[in-house]
């Protein structure tokens, strides 16, 4: 199946701004699904609110566009009810880690078989460029005209500590790497977190001296490095990319099946 068969062509061109990274993440996801050869009928994509969330409208899967921050909670209900379905939950950084932060850490902790893709553009795009929990210190935004003073989350460390069984980071610049990582994440039996740096030239870039999409993509290239590379020793500021955690841990739905078996056995006695 050609990967274009996975999109709802009638809604294109999509709503995202020129040069927005979210279209690249969409492409990466579809390429990964194509590579894995998953039947469209077996995929449920659940999103929240924001620029990122509009992604569900463009894919020809079972798609659920929900409310702000709660996509993982909706996805949990779907997955537990139909564990054989493949659940993919794309979220923005504000969606996943501000309003949805609690659901995110608990989904990690449960290790339920869902792939969370965090499209991190460090800004609230849909509402016009306010700072997010991923903006970091010293950035400009429409609600930070004098620059931000809040620390940002490290999504990888957060997901790892909260108990996700697969944790990775990549960028839209490294789209081939993104596709490979998404394939691994979707294949992982457990909760998978993939953080993808995605450019928002319109709001983040324009206010933070990265005026064009290519400036932003080059920023991703110049400021990241594969995990464990020598370059990092010389330049500790570089952000590592790659797969941080890929471990086999008990998965929620499988564990619940054991509970069902236990409950049925107890009542037979």
């Amino acid at each position: 199946m050609a990967f274009k068969d996975y999109i709802r062509e009638r809604f294109f061109p999509h709503i995202w701004c020129p040069g927005c990274g979210h279209g690249m993440v969409l492409k990466g996801m579809l390429k990964a699904v194509e590579k894995l050869g998953i039947d469209k009928n077996n995929i449920v994509m659940v999103s929240g609110i924001g620029c990122s969330a509009r992604i569900t409208g463009y894919v020809d899967f079972h798609t659920l566009h929900t409310i702000h921050g709660r996509a993982l909670a909706f996805a949990t209900g779907v997955k537990i009810s139909r564990p054989e379905l493949c659940l993919i939950v794309p979220m923005g950084d504000g969606d996943a880690l501000a309003i949805g932060g609690n659901h995110f850490i608990h989904a990690c902790r449960r290790n339920i078989d869902i792939t969370a893709v965090i499209m991190n553009n460090r800004i609230y795009g849909m509402t016009g460029g306010q700072y997010s929990p991923l903006s970091g210190i010293g950035k400009y935004a429409s609600t930070a005209p004098y620059s931000t003073i809040e620390n940002k989350f490290d999504i990888v460390k957060l997901a790892e500590t909260a108990g996700a069984s697969f944790v990775a980071r990549t960028t839209t610049y490294h789209i081939r790497e993104m596709i490979d990582i998404l394939c691994m994440a979707i294949s992982n039996k457990g909760f998978s977190v993939v953080e993808i740096f995605s450019q928002c030239p319109t709001y983040f870039g324009r206010k933070n001296e990265l005026k064009t999409p290519t400036d932003m993509l080059n920023y991703f290239k110049d400021n990241t490095t594969p995990i464990g590379s020598k370059v990092k020793e010389a330049n500790p500021e570089l952000i590592e990319r790659g797969v941080f955690i890929n471990s086999s841990m008990p998965e929620y739905c499988e564990e619940y099946d054991k509970i069902v078996a236990k409950a049925k056995k107890n009542t037979e006695v």
């Binding site: 929900t66 709660r70 909670a73 909706f74 996805a75 209900g77 537990i80 379905l85 609690n102």
Partner: peptide
Amino acid sequence: PIKGGKFIQMEDEIASMCAIIGASLTG
């Protein structure tokens, strides 16, 4: 679980409401 149904204690009431909506969609 005795009848093969599913119970989950979510992280808050919001998540509980969202989870039942997701489950209902599957029928």
